[in-house]
């Protein structure tokens, strides 16, 4: 077990390292000179040079990289190009907001997906199933940013029930969560439905019925237990989708989260902040997937007890 943990930790570290290195160099090589961009066009060279020195972009690339890595070791993610606040502070300020959004969305989407997916499987080919599948098709085709706009148009502008932007209270969660949920649920529902359908057709389910096990137990225990394992991997999947979706959603709803922070940073060529955002995203992603793998190994007796 210990060996496994070590192996995985190493893998994760390699991935994260690879990602931040990649981003670091892409930013500096592909981009224009941030110092020049921060100054009005036609600015004198000496002043631009001063900006460069302030930002630290006048030094050789590798030196900058080395500096960055050393900083990471000290948990110092650098300072923002715009305004000079420590990146870490900004991240800590915005992370909880994104986290809250993510958690509420995951809970909401998972519940809906389970109910609709299992329900559709149980009612396969009947009306309920067809409706669910139609929803899945439509939702898969819906651009999330468009849905957000439409929702805002209707619920905020027309009906004035919900706020259009900013995080002002619990009601602010509604539209962003719904938008994200519409993006997440189709894949989840499909997977749940498919897995459940298969599980219900398994030999052991038939054998259980033959022993007189009542139908509700067959569904809720026998079939569900077998399905639940692959469903855990869905949580990892969800997080990836939420992460991706959060950029759009936070942008539209002006949600003070990491996504917005990162997007603004990209627009402003704010290298340290971009790197900070990337680091957080990579860490979150990798870490959650690791947890999912652990959970799978712990819960599936076939893996857990393999060594006879």
């Amino acid at each position: 077990m210990l060996v496994y943990l070590l192996k995985r930790s190493l893998q994760m570290a390699v991935v994260v390292f690879g990602v931040i290195t990649l981003v670091f160099f892409i930013l500096r090589i592909a981009s224009g000179d941030p110092a020049r961009l921060m100054n009005p066009p036609g600015q004198q060279e000496e002043i631009v040079q001063l900006t460069r020195e302030r930002l630290g972009t006048d030094r050789p690339l590798l030196v900058q990289f080395g500096d960055y890595l050393l900083g990471l070791a000290r948990l110092d993610l650098g300072t923002s190009f715009h305004g000079g606040q420590p990146v870490l502070d900004e991240i800590l300020r915005t992370l909880p907001n994104t986290a809250m959004l993510a958690i509420v969305t995951i809970v909401f989407s998972s519940t809906i997906a389970l109910i609709l997916g299992i329900g559709a499987a149980l009612q396969a080919d009947k009306l309920f199933d067809r409706i669910v599948l139609v929803y899945v098709s439509l939702a898969l085709a819906t651009p999330s940013f468009w849905l957000a706009i439409v929702l805002v148009l209707y619920f905020s502008v027309q009906l004035r029930w919900l706020p259009a932007i900013d995080l002002v209270g619990p009601q602010s969660f509604v539209l962003p969560v719904v938008t994200l949920a519409v993006a997440l649920t189709p894949v989840l529902i499909r997977t749940v439905r498919q897995s459940f359908l298969e599980a219900l057709g398994d030999d052991h389910v038939r054998a259980a019925r033959a022993r007189g096990i009542p139908e509700h137990r067959v569904i809720l225990i026998h079939a569900l237990k077998v399905t639940s394992l692959p469903l855990i991997t869905l949580i990892g999947l969800q997080l990836g989708l939420i992460l991706a979706g959060s950029y759009v959603v936070e942008y539209i709803f002006n949600w003070p989260g990491i996504g917005k922070l990162t997007l603004d940073a990209v627009a402003g060529r704010n290298f340290p902040m971009i790197q900070g955002g990337v680091l957080v995203a990579a860490l979150a992603f990798v870490f959650v997937n690791f947890l999912v793998d652990l959970a799978y190994a712990a819960l599936d007796p076939r893996i857990r007890l393999s060594a006879r």
Partner: peptide, 9 residues
């Protein structure tokens, strides 16, 4: 290979 996810043995 025996030992499942751990790859032991």
């Amino acid at each position: 290979q025996a030992g499942g996810a751990l790859g032991f043995g």
